[in-house]
Design a protein around this nucleic acid. Sequence first.
DNA 1: TATTGTTATACTCTATAACTATA
DNA 2: TATAGTTATAGAGTATAACAATA
Lengths: 157, 157
Amino acid sequence: MAHATAARQGAQTSPEDHADLEDLVGYNLKRAYVIVDADFRRALGEDGLAPRVFSALSLIVHIPDITQSDLARRLGIERSGLVAITDDLEARGFVIRQPVPGDRRVQALAATKAGKAAYLEALQTVRAHEARLLSDLSPAEAETLVGLLRKIRQIGD
Amino acid sequence: MAHATAARQGAQTSPEDHADLEDLVGYNLKRAYVIVDADFRRALGEDGLAPRVFSALSLIVHIPDITQSDLARRLGIERSGLVAITDDLEARGFVIRQPVPGDRRVQALAATKAGKAAYLEALQTVRAHEARLLSDLSPAEAETLVGLLRKIRQIGD
DNA sequence: TATTGTTATACTCTATAACTATA
DNA sequence: TATAGTTATAGAGTATAACAATA
């Protein structure tokens, strides 16, 4: 049925009109994401924090003694994916895994002094990167963009 | 210098405030992208077109005899990445590689009848997926979102 | 039985570099 | 020399499934 409808519409589609793709939210979302992601990595440098590592560090700094499971849930990724991220942060001396009294399965993540300082420095770099990348958007537009993206995020819960 | 500034701000940051991350465009962009990408794949099914294959097919349908190099440039990826995409579309019988008279290095890509029909059917599925995912956004908001994402894309040129 | 952290494994997407055949 | 398509390869990022320790 969908096929027949599609075929019927096909007769009306001119070959030169390629607005299809450019009008899709998903396509624009991905293209924008790729640009922002690449610029983030460029801004933080070859040996800098990867986006996902920066995000994890941010939550660890702000939520003391967060567990890996909780962190994974908040970041929207699987628990198993957090191991490499935590290893990365631990190897840099930014985070330590701490035993939790009362539940020996759990390891609480805590940012070290160096980790907190590194986070705040990275945050400034990230904010500069975003300011540069969003220079064509007014502050109001940037806020609108974040609000609209959050609406999409809420549906995906 | 940036370090000293960051350290100074650190003293003012309360541990409970984790607006940092949630206010960053990049973070929201990625989270939204992940959701839309996953729903796209779900909508088109296990053996359906992957997002990048759908995008390529869209351009091939709309720009007859486009070359792979041109297509790669328009999609913002490397030439080498297009080989697998073209192989995929060719294996499905949706696209053929055609020799171009006058330059034997080039292979023009052309959508078959089946390819055109499959594209239009997929487009309907994609539009339904986007309508579902963007149900919390008004048509005006969706348009605003696309406009803002395009502004980001333009900077990354 | 369920949960936490972990490992092993595989898959997608992408890039870089080098090759070939042409130009 | 330069370009189009291709191959080989590697590196992120992610998921799934299974495991040991613990609850």
